[in-house]
């Protein structure tokens, strides 16, 4: 019997040895906080896409390259608490002084977006040219494609998902399991975790989180925007289409950017 017990103990001991570091990893899930995003726009590529065979534009582009850096950066914040999120620009809305090449609204619109992921509703404040619109509508349903690719962003492990928006805008997003909120920057939502990185390769724009501030978030940091002409998404699309219909192909590409 003693031998039996001894064997039992040995087995148990061996078992103990054979299972090193068998503890479940402690993982912290972030339920509320503020994420800082850096938006980068590749100005050279965007302008190059617009050039035709026009020698004046080519010369102006060369001059632009000499006196401006390749990327323009903008900072945004995304505050979230459970299902509620709010996205807004960190730098005050400086008048876009890009001149001829900077007046393209698809470069940066300084959107303020408040979303409720439970009710699937969002309210966005967009300023397009001389008008400010307040768009209240349901969240965009994005058909994401799941992948196995991963990357680390702001210290969090993220998984990649791809999608096509508005029939022709290719989106690459990275979301993290550690923030169980289906939100993200701008109007990108609908993934199993918080989106910490978004790239629109053909629009030459990326948003990547630089910092995640894991802290409780007050209600006023999630306040819904109120300024602007109240419309829903469909009405906005109609109004923009009507105003830009005589602009030709160029309008179609910026129209898509304005609707994002």
């Amino acid at each position: 019997m003693i031998i039996r017990t001894f064997q039992l103990f040995t087995c148990l001991f061996a078992l103990g040895l054979c299972t090193p570091s068998a503890q479940a990893q402690y993982a912290r899930f972030v339920e509320s906080g503020v994420i800082t995003f850096e938006k980068r726009v590749n100005m050279y590529a965007k302008i190059k896409d617009r050039l035709g065979n026009n020698s004046f534009m080519e010369q102006a582009f060369e001059q632009y390259q000499r006196s401006n850096p390749q990327f323009k950066a903008f900072n945004y914040h995304l505050a979230f608490n459970g299902p509620k999120t709010r996205f807004w620009p960190a730098d005050s809305q400086a008048a876009l002084s890009g001149g001829f090449f900077g007046s393209d609204p698809s470069i940066d619109m300084g959107n303020i977006i408040a979303a409720d992921l439970l009710t699937q509703q969002s309210t966005s404040q967009k300023s397009i040219y001389e008008e400010t619109f307040l768009i209240t509508d349901s969240l965009r349903q994005i058909q994401w494609r799941f992948t196995n690719e991963s990357r680390e962003i702001a210290g969090y492990e993220c998984r990649r998902a791809n999608a096509i928006l508005l029939d022709s805008i290719y989106v690459v997003a990275f979301y993290t399991d550690q923030i169980p909120v289906s939100g993200g920057p701008e109007s990108f939502t609908g993934l199993p975790g918080m989106i910490l990185g978004v790239a629109l390769p053909y629009e030459h724009v990326t948003y990547f989180a630089t910092k995640v501030d894991d802290r409780p978030v007050a209600a006023k940091e999630l306040a819904v925007p109120t300024k602007g002409k109240a419309v829903n998404y469909r009405e906005l699309q109609e109004q923009l289409k009507a105003s830009l219909k005589n602009w030709g192909d160029y309008a179609q590409s910026i129209l898509k950017a304005m609707l994002l």
């Binding site: 590749n42 050279y44 590529a45 390749q70 990327f71 494609r145 992948t147 990357r151 791809n162 999608a163 096509i164 022709s168 290719y170 690459v172 790239a199 390769p201 053909y202 030459h204 990326t206």
Partner: peptide, 27 residues
């Protein structure tokens, strides 16, 4: 490879399942 840059901008690689729909020639 962790990062691939094309002309200074990070390249994310196209998704063949999505991009089979006719989008743009340069893609």
């Amino acid at each position: 490879v962790n990062k691939v840059l094309v002309d200074g901008e990070e390249f994310f690689g196209d998704d063949p399942t999505l991009v089979t729909q006719n989008l743009r020639g340069d893609m």
